[in-house]
Design a protein around this nucleic acid. Structure first.
Lengths: 195, 195
DNA sequence: GTCTATAATTCGATAGAC
DNA sequence: GTCTATCGAATTATAGAC
């Protein structure tokens, strides 16, 4: 029965991919060897190459994500910050989506291709979402600052693990972030001096 | 003349350290070999070990920083956000101090010891500075959120280099960040629902 | 004080048996 | 479809000549 829905090779492949996501997310691209992943997946190192051709392509498969940003056009303008913040915390805390995000953010600082992918995600997913809810014409800088806020929260909580951030309950984190995002959305561009 | 103020070995050592800071700051710990640094410093690879014992200790020397946070106790409470933000931008833009910060932030996500050092800097330098200006008793979460804001800005501008962030003039960046920090400092803790 | 030569690992990837 | 054995390259670090 060669074309059954779940062949043994498919299950092995899935185990390898799960192990890769976990280890890449925890130690980054350079900190993990194919042998490490094979050990974690209880598979033979040669199989990783057979199924994924190279370490780079295995990493690319492990770093595949979709932010699934919520539709914001119908929301009350004053709620957008909270909606985005709640979605952010939920996505990062859920292992099914958070692991892939960790893979990306962990390796982006030292992997040029991963950094490029994050810039593409910003341009293709974050900027359009902010543009959709921002009345003013130039909303690019707002999207950039919101992205820096979100990534700052993710970096300190899930990557660097500052105790003051990891100890904070998720809902409290979401409320702080929501208020900050809303502050950016409601602000006008500052062109000259004075707060 | 063996004990002259600047011996040749001292100058070689300084060249090695400068090259290490530059390359570690750009590619991270794992992305740079001792041969790379030796090439950049125009020195022999064996000398790096002779002067710094190991790659780890050379990295530690390159990652040595002091935030030199300004004295805030005398400042007007409403100015603290701007003062901190201006200091942040200045420190990151100046190559003499910014290079070391880049070394730290670039490698912290994949280097456990570097992450530990950042946590120590946060606990030893950032938290005390925020405590000094915060009237309320529990200011630890404020320090954590301010740190996440600052690191988010640094990450997107100097490490990931999102175009929307790198294109922003330094003084505009400082004003945005200053307003956000001030928002954090002026806020009260959120314990239950409602913005 | 500086450099050559190399030891000792470790890695990604391949070839081929089973 | 899975595993054994191994190649070739790159790494940190050392030993010793000059």
């Amino acid at each position: 029965m060669p074309n059954q829905p779940t062949r043994k090779s498919d299950r092995t492949r899935a185990r390898i991919l799960a192990a890769a996501r976990e280890l890449f997310g925890e130690h980054g691209f350079d900190g993990v060897s194919l042998r490490d992943i094979a050990g974690q997946a209880d598979a033979d190192p040669a199989l990783l190459i057979r199924y994924f051709q190279s370490k780079d392509r295995l990493f690319a498969a492990a770093a595949e994500i979709d932010l699934r940003l919520p539709e914001l056009t119908g929301a009350r303008p004053d709620d957008v910050g909270c909606i985005l913040a709640a979605h952010f915390v939920e996505t990062w805390e859920d292992p099914r989506t958070g692991t892939g995000l960790r893979v990306l953010l962990r390796s982006a600082p030292t992997q040029k291709e991963t950094a490029e992918r994050m810039r593409a995600i910003f341009a293709g997913q974050v900027m359009p979402a902010i543009r959709a809810v921002d009345r003013s014409g130039a909303s690019d800088w707002k999207a950039a600052i919101i992205a820096s806020q979100v990534l700052g929260f993710a970096l300190t909580r899930y990557i660097l693990e500052l105790p003051a951030m990891t100890h904070m309950p998720g809902d409290e984190l979401a409320r702080h972030l929501g208020r900050l995002i809303q502050t950016i959305l409601d602000s006008e561009r500052i062109t000259d001096a004075d707060p």
